[in-house]
């Protein structure tokens, strides 16, 4: 049987050189970094008893503590909603200024993106520590931290969405004689709105989880109570807080997943 004439593959393609080299490099990097940082995987198993001990002490949750933590849990959710909303709203103009298909000036785009990169490099825990120092212990510090954290993350997601839109409607609006702002409002916004909301909900999910940790630094919410119970070795209370947080995160994730499915 003779094959019809087909183009020949180069030896790089035939021996899958790129895939094999990539895998080898990845494995070498993994081994090298675990050597250098001195991570001892064995310790995880030898100290497993400690872990079990903690679990046993948490196995009798103090259910009556639930009433106490409802208020801070709600505060955590409110912090997340407020912070995400403020951050996402601020992100919209910056996302527009970073999108290469809307802003042709490289300088303006470069400066905006550099600024966003800088914001993103600040870890949320560092932000929380700073704002607790500025605003004092309480949820204001938490909201500001989450707003800045969401702003950095969402602005990048947003401008990447903007760069994928269909440019046809923009051309049409431009030919009509519309101003730049009108063009964005009429031709860009409807195309990206659903994805914006989807990313907003995704960020909200992350922030609900993050804000429990931020509270640990004194930035308000349930984290404050988590820290207190751990400091007092009151593991039956810790158990209730963890379970309640889990329920809240699951519910928020469920709602947001559902909404995003409906939207996209």
């Amino acid at each position: 049987m003779t094959y019809p004439e087909t183009p020949r593959r180069s030896w790089v393609q035939r021996w899958h050189v790129k895939g094999i080299v990539g895998t080898v490099v990845l494995v070498v990097l993994l081994i090298a970094s675990s050597r250098m940082t001195g991570v001892d995987v064995g310790m995880f198993f030898s100290n497993f008893g400690q872990f079990m001990n903690l679990l046993v002490r948490m196995s009798s949750p103090a259910w009556d503590y639930t009433a106490v933590i409802i208020q801070p849990l709600l505060e955590t959710i409110q912090m997340a909603i407020l912070g995400t909303t403020i951050g996402a709203a601020l992100a919209i103009p910056f996302a527009v200024l970073s999108a290469s298909n809307l802003i042709h000036s490289r300088l303006l785009r470069g400066v905006t993106r550099l600024f966003l990169d800088l914001v993103r490099t600040l870890p949320d825990l560092l932000l929380a520590a700073i704002f607790v120092a500025i605003f004092g212990i309480g949820s204001t510090a938490g909201v500001v931290t989450l707003a800045i954290f969401s702003f950095g993350m969402v602005s990048k997601l947003f401008y990447e969405v903007i760069e994928t839109i269909d440019m046809g409607p923009l051309e049409a609006l431009e030919s009509v004689g519309a101003s730049k702002v009108t063009i964005i409002w009429y031709a860009v916004l409807p195309q990206i709105l659903n994805q914006f909301i989807s990313y907003f909900l995704y960020t909200l999910e992350i922030n609900v989880r993050a804000s429990t940790v931020l509270g640990y630094l004194g930035a308000g919410g349930i984290g404050v109570f988590l820290q207190r119970s751990l400091n007092e070795f009151n593991y039956s209370q810790t158990a209730v807080i963890i379970l309640a947080t889990l329920v809240v995160v699951l519910v928020i994730d469920g709602i947001s997943n559902h909404l995003r499915r409906v939207l996209l």
Binding site: D166, G168, P169, E171, A172, L173, S175, V176, G177, A178, S179, T182, Y186, A187, P190, Q191, L193, N194
Partner: peptide
């Protein structure tokens, strides 16, 4: 101007698309 690809705003209503011709 009329385009090969129509260039309507797909997710918006026909009314809004038509009105967008008046924005100037």
């Amino acid at each position: 101007m009329i385009f090969q690809g129509f260039n309507l705003i797909n997710r918006s209503s026909v009314e809004r698309n038509v009105l967008s011709g008046r924005v100037s």
